[in-house]
Design a protein around this nucleic acid. Structure first.
Lengths: 232, 232
DNA sequence: ATTAAGATAATTGTATGCAAATAATATACA
DNA sequence: TGTATATTATTTGCATACAATTATCTTAAT
């Protein structure tokens, strides 16, 4: 497989929560950790900052962007709207090649679910949804969604960890089924079905996360508790 | 006024089209032009690349992102949806401080229109709409809109140049009036009125740009003609 | 003992030099 | 003359040294 760039390496560590939200990132430590000089480290941090995964304050270093419950609400709020938009566009504009890409991502997701490799699942899930966004042929929706996914992936990392650890096979299969249904609707250019399918998928995920927040403790603990309610 | 960072300087040159779309940016030239060494130049280019204003290809340098008609269509398509979303949220969630910010931006816009300083108009127009987005309290909508504005500003730069040059006072006053109406609706938390107002504003701008594309030549020439129609 | 100011250390911002990759040019061969 | 290859030059990527800023520690005064 292709060698991962320094940017991708650091990003991976953040997404997989090996570098937790809120961590202060001083350049020297990153130099020692990743074995590269400060220049490429700084350049990576700038990219990550533009992506929203780290926050840079002038002359005061960088920290991994914290996750709070307002972030969570915002992710679903913006995600719902933008997904609905590009899903509709994908039905209208997707090429055969787009369908190829979506199909491949869908299969990868299924196989990663099978293997139970959480960071792989998170990655292929993102790729699946992004490949649909790309089918919509509007770069602003793609970029916006990429921005949302950056934060979403960290939440997903926590959530999938819970599901896999508790061997929650029903949920796993539901997710796979929903992806299949969505894929088929877009392949058929069935706008109504696709929109309904994304909404169903999104609601299922929202409900799952909400349950985790209420029942479990890991997610809420890692996110950092704030007294902000999730909207219905 | 506060000294502008190198990033802001380069960004300004791109927005104002002093560095035209498609321009190849080699680091050495930028060093000579801005009087700083390659390191901060490179870091600025990376930020601009993440923002979508320049495109970096590994080992092959950077170019200012071109503008084509598909970009124009995408801007309006995504912009309409996201504006509608955050305008609605702003009505629900804006604080008194948000209203302050919006009011200040609106006044700045009016005064810049009066002065006829195009790059100032473009900047204060962006600030006005962004301050509304911030009232919506969803960082993804803010970031998404910022991304759209980055490209929109270059279009706006061309369009305002035409309007100012042709002394099109009617259009100028309409824009100012629409901003005022929108501001008032948000201050009153009148969701319906605000949504209608953004839609009207957006349609007016769309129509204006479309006319420029048909009648004038400057915009279409600078953008780079492609045979893609604007949707109604 | 607490606080303020100064000195010292640590960290980020910038400049420059070297290595690697790409582009341009020259030369050899068909 | 056209093409392929080798060589040179240019440009980007990375490493390191220095400057400027911020943080920490020491010390003195109240």
């Amino acid at each position: 497989m292709p060698k991962r760039s320094l940017y991708e390496q650091i990003r991976h560590e953040i997404i997989t929560l090996r570098i937790p939200p809120g961590t202060y990132l001083d350049e020297q430590s990153l130099v020692e950790r990743f074995g590269m000089s400060r220049t490429p480290i700084r350049e990576s941090l700038i990219r990550l900052s533009a992506e929203g995964l780290v926050e840079i304050r002038k002359n005061r270093g960088a920290t991994v962007t914290p996750l709070d419950l307002l972030t969570l609400q915002s992710i679903f709020e913006a995600g719902d709207l933008i997904e609905k938009a590009f899903t509709r566009l994908a039905c209208l504009r997707r090429t055969d090649q787009d369908i190829e890409h979506i199909a491949r991502a869908q299969k990868q997701f299924a196989s990663d679910l099978e293997r139970g490799d959480i960071s792989a699942i998170v990655e292929s899930n993102s790729r699946f949804h992004l490949s649909i966004a790309e089918g919509g042929k509007n770069k602003y929706f793609v970029d916006s969604y990429r921005r949302i996914l950056a934060d979403h992936e960290r939440i997903a990392q926590m959530w999938y960890t819970e599901q896999i650890n508790s061997s929650n096979q029903a949920i796993i299969e539901t997710l796979d089924q929903q992806h299949k249904t969505l894929y088929k609707a877009i392949a058929d250019r069935d706008t109504k079905a696709a929109e309904y399918s994304t909404m169903e998928h999104s609601n299922f995920c929202k409900e799952g996360v909400r349950k985790s927040l209420i029942i479990g403790e890991s997610v809420i603990a890692d996110i950092g508790l704030q007294d902000i309610g999730l909207q219905g």
